[in-house]
Structures are given as C-alpha cells and as structure tokens.
C-alpha cells in the first residue's frame, strides 16, 4: 500500500475518532454550554429595545427579569428529569457572569493581562478600544446603561474586582441590587 493511501486511511480514522469523542456524553460533567456564547435560555434582551429597558427598570420584585422566569437554565424540560447526581443547574445570572469572565480571560490571553479601570473603561477596552481593535463582548452580553457601563439582568452595573493581571472577579449585585451582599453573583 502506498504511503499516500496509508495517510488517507489514518486521516479518516482520526476524523471518525475525533467526532466520536466529541459527541459522546459525559455524565460526570454538567451540560453547561460554552460560556463564550451565552445560552439561549439566558439570552439577554437587546439593550436598545425600550421594552427590555422597561423590563429591567420595572422589575422590582427582586426576581430575575421575565426572560428567565419560565425557562430552564440549561436546555429545557428534559434537564429537569436528569439524574439527581448531577450538580444543580446554574442560574442564568451565573451563566452570564461566567460568560463575561471567560471573555475577559480571552482578552487576557490575547493581551497578556486583563483590561483595567472602571466598568465603562473595561467595556470600551473589550469592544474594540484595544490595540488590535478586537471585540471581546458578544452582542448577547452587551447590555449597557447610559454611562456605557455593563449592567446585569437587574440593571445594576457589574463590578469588576481587579485582583491581578490575570485574575478578575466579575460581580453582579444580584436581585437586591446592592453589591457585596449575600445574593451577589460572582465569576472568575
């Protein structure tokens, strides 16, 4: 058999093995979607639509805004009957914070350190205001207030606790809209 044929055969086997490995289920790991892409259940209404703003502004019950009320965090009702040994599903706010933290880590890997400064300064840096003009804030996560600050689902600006060049804590004030309280949602 020629070397070329061996190579083609090897390539085919590798491809099949890769697909099989990627497609198989992993019961030990919760089925959390990739953080960089915000899951559908946690999708944030566009900040530009007045309806979304009023939804955030008028929700005074402390509950997550309507978009998350009746939706499963992970992938629908099938998850509700999942094995009890699986970890509790994460809240949409936690998934959103995780997604933000992951995008900040991507920025850090590209530029050798996290963006720094105030909320608005960090947003500017992650939306093209960096040396490469690259964007690290997907549209799904880009919910801004009039000051250009990234706000959480309850309308409160996120707090970015800058601990080190590659260690940033993303903190949402949570339903009570008061930061540094027990209902805060954090991600690193």
């Amino acid at each position: 058999m020629s070397r070329k044929l061996w190579f083609v055969l090897f390539l085919a086997v590798s491809t099949v093995a890769t697909f099989w490995y990627g497609a198989r289920s992993n019961p030990a790991k919760p089925a959390v979607p990739p953080a960089a892409a915000v899951p559908r259940a946690a999708k944030i209404p566009s900040p530009e639509t007045p309806a979304s703003r009023s939804a955030v502004a008028t929700n005074s019950t402390g509950a997550m805004p309507a978009l998350n009320k009746n939706t499963s965090v992970i992938s629908g009702s099938s998850q509700a009957s999942a094995s009890r040994s699986r970890p509790e599903p994460q809240s949409p706010a936690k998934i959103e914070a995780d997604a933000l933290a992951l995008n900040i880590r991507h920025y850090s890997q590209r530029f050798g350190g996290n963006p720094v400064g105030s909320n608005a300064e960090i947003v500017r840096e992650m939306t093209g205001g960096n040396l490469k003009g690259a964007t690290y804030l997907p549209t799904e996560l880009k919910r801004l207030n009039d000051n250009g600050e990234l706000i959480d689902a309850w309308g409160t600006p996120y707090f970015f606790h800058q601990n080190a060049a590659n260690y940033m804590e993303v903190r949402s004030a949570g339903p009570d809209k008061k930061i540094w309280t027990t209902d805060d949602v954090t991600a690193r």
């Binding site: 996290n114 720094v116 400064g117 800058q162 601990n163 080190a164 060049a165 260690y167």
Partner: peptide, 14 residues
C-alpha cells in the same frame, strides 16, 4: 492612557 499609566493599574497584586 496606555502610554501614561502603569500596566494593570487598579489591580491589587500588580
């Protein structure tokens, strides 16, 4: 800003 500020300004450990 980048020219005039120390790297990782506002970050504790830095």
């Amino acid at each position: 800003t980048k020219f005039y500020t120390p790297p990782q300004l506002f970050s504790h450990s830095d």
